[in-house]
Every structure is written in structure tokens, then in C-alpha cells.
């Protein structure tokens, strides 16, 4: 059977498709147009709101498969894997894309191994190779110091997960037509071996780090949780959010959900202010390309200054109180 079409695995929250899913549909549409082929999306869940399917069509999908069953109420790798594998074997897509989200990171490798194909994770560029027709998959490696481009010769579908906030979603077009297909996965009540005993939501107060327009970030040099209280003060004045480097998160000066970097959150504020942040590559990889960076560090050779637009070489403890005062004065008027 000829393999054709692009399939993306969507995610949603309530009646809203996730922003990463819109980005998946954006790059998926581009790839499908190159092939003059179809773009399909699949959503798995229980009592899925039809609005989600309509949003996917407006964002570029031609077909939307809805796998709706009570066993899909919460994400469990074993059941989701069995369901997706069934769909992939049935419709035989050429390309299969997932988001590099909690679910995508957990599910995509297992799906790839189970299908016997090659996956590339956390991609920032995808295109078809002119010579072979295979999918060229480019991703950051060595903690963001370099990039590597891969192709998969050894299997189908061509698989990748994509990094958030790199690919552009299409502006929603509500006049687009598409087909919504309820899909009954042929899984015989497959029991998940993993049982969820408890779910704890860590709702952090204030503005979400990923959505903040201003991010104040502290690094190793902050020295302790007390220092971060001062950062909170600045964040409040600038109506922003506070994040930390991996060291700050390791030492529990900030919650692990506030770690910025390749393995933590990716942020895309207009302004990022780094205090006592050295600027390791894996950290800088978590800051979007169009963000303006301001940095305060004692060490003039700190790597963060190679990314910064504005810099102060000094002890952050001496700079911060005056910065807070001046910002308060400027932002109150």
C-alpha cells in the first residue's frame, strides 16, 4: 500500500486545541501542500468537544479523527499507544508528527519503536529532501550548541516531535472545509500496566511563565530562595513572571516548573532580564529568538552577554534594588 498524507497527533484542554497543536498543523499543512496531499489530525480523549475538531480544520486539517472512549479519559501510554498504532496501520501516513510536550515525549519514542521506524525528537525544521523524498529533520544537539539533520532510511512513517514556539500556526480560517471522522480503535479493553494513583496540579500563582511578556530569571549567583523574593518584587512591578536556571531549580530556589531551558520551559517574552545568570547554551536555548535580553552579571566574560542586548557588569545585589526603584517610578506613571 502506498503511504500518503501527513498525520499529526493533537492535544487539547477542555474545548481548546493546544497552541502546539496549531503549530503542528501549520508545519503539517506546509508539508502536505508540498506533496499535494492530505493533512489529518487525531485527537484522543473522552467526551471530546467538537469545537476542538473545528479548530483543527480552521488551522489546516483536511480530516480529523476523533477517538472518543471512556478508557481515554486520562493519558496513559499503553492505551494511547495501542489506539494510535491501530490508526497508523490503517491509514498508513507517510509522515507522523507529535508535539514535544509531556505526552509527545512519553508517547512518540514508544510508538516509533513499536512501529519499527526512526524518530527524531524536538525538531526545529522539517522539509522534504529533494533527492530522496525523505523527511529532513533538524534538531538542536549538544545542549543547543549545534544542530543535526537526520533522515530515516529505515522505516515508515517518517516520524518527528516538534519543539514549541518554533513553527508558525496558520491564522484560523473558519471557512475551511474538512471531515470529522469518529474512529473506534480496535483495542480489546487493553489494560494499562501503569495506574495513576493521584494527580497533583501545581498551579503557580501569578502570570504563567510561558505566557508572560516580561520574564525575570535568576541563576546560580542568586545564592538562595531569599534572593528570589527580590526578583518577585521586580516581576510584580513589570507584570512579569519569575524563572530560574537549572541550578536554581536543582537547589529548589524556584519550583521545577519554573526552570527555563532546553529541558525546562521555553519562554518567548518581549523582555527577559537575567540576573546572575551565566548563560549556558542549554539555558539560552529556552529563550525565543526574538526576545530582547538584558543581563546583570559580575563576570564580563559571562556567556549571557553574547546573547544580551543590554548589559551591566556588576553584582546583581547592588543593581537590583535601584532597578526595582527606577522601574517602580517609570511604571507607576
Amino acid at each position: 500500500m502506498e503511504r500518503k498524507g501527513i498525520l499529526i497527533v493533537g492535544e487539547f484542554n477542555g474545548s481548546r486545541m493546544s497552541s502546539l497543536t496549531a503549530e503542528l498543523l501549520g508545519i503539517g499543512r506546509t508539508l502536505a501542500d508540498v506533496r499535494r496531499g492530505e493533512l489529518a489530525a487525531v485527537f484522543i480523549g473522552s467526551w471530546i468537544d467538537h469545537m476542538v475538531a473545528l479548530q483543527a480544520i480552521a488551522a489546516g486539517a483536511d480530516k480529523v479523527y476523533l477517538m472518543d472512549a471512556s478508557i481515554f479519559r486520562e493519558y496513559l501510554a499503553d492505551t494511547y499507544l495501542a489506539a494510535l498504532k491501530g490508526l497508523v496501520n490503517e491509514i498508513q501516513p507517510e509522515v507522523l508528527l507529535l508535539g514535544h510536550s509531556s505526552m509527545g515525549k512519553d508517547l512518540a519514542p514508544r510508538l516509533a519503536f513499536s512501529l519499527g521506524t526512526g524518530l527524531t525528537t524536538d525538531c526545529i525544521d522539517l522539509s522534504f529532501d529533494a533527492a530522496t523524498g525523505l523527511l529532513r529533520k533538524t534538531k538542536p544537539v549538544y545542549g543547543g550548541n549545534a544542530c543535526a539533520t537526520y533522515v530515516c532510511y529505515g522505516g515508515y512513517p517518517q516520524m518527528a516531535t516538534i519543539r514549541a514556539k518554533v513553527f508558525l500556526p496558520r491564522p484560523p480560517d473558519v471557512s475551511r472545509k474538512g471531515e470529522v471522522i469518529p474512529w473506534q480503535p480496535r483495542i480489546s479493553g487493553e489494560e494499562s500496566r501503569v495506574k495513576i494513583i493521584k494527580r497533583v496540579k501545581e498551579d503557580l500563582p501569578g502570570i504563567k511563565l510561558e505566557e508572560a511578556n516580561v520574564v525575570i530569571c535568576g541563576g546560580r549567583g542568586i545564592g538562595g530562595p531569599e534572593g528570589f523574593k527580590k526578583l518577585d518584587e521586580l516581576a510584580q512591578i513589570l507584570r512579569g513572571a519569575v524563572g530560574g536556571t537549572r541550578i536554581a531549580s536543582d537547589k529548589k530556589w524556584v519550583p521545577s516548573a519554573c526552570q527555563i531551558g532546553l529541558t525546562g520551559k521555553l519562554v518567548s517574552p518581549s523582555l527577559y532580564i537575567g540576573l546572575a545568570v551565566s548563560g549556558a547554551s542549554q539555558h539560552l536555548a529556552g529563550i525565543a529568538g526574538n526576545t530582547v535580553v538584558a543581563a546583570v552579571n559580575k563576570d564580563p566574560a559571562a556567556n549571557i552577554f553574547s546573547r544580551a542586548r543590554y548589559g551591566i557588569v556588576d553584582d546583581y545585589q547592588k543593581v537590583l534594588p535601584a532597578l526595582i526603584e527606577k522601574c517602580r517610578q517609570l511604571c507607576s506613571g
Binding site: 529533520k137 539533520t149 530515516c152
Partner: peptide, 12 residues
């Protein structure tokens, strides 16, 4: 047998 092959490694 390998599935993926690296075509290029580069510093952006």
C-alpha cells in the same frame, strides 16, 4: 540496522 542517519552536523 540503523533507522536514522545523520546527514549534517552544524553550528547555527
Amino acid at each position: 540496522k540503523q533507522r536514522n542517519e545523520m546527514l549534517a552536523l552544524f553550528i547555527p
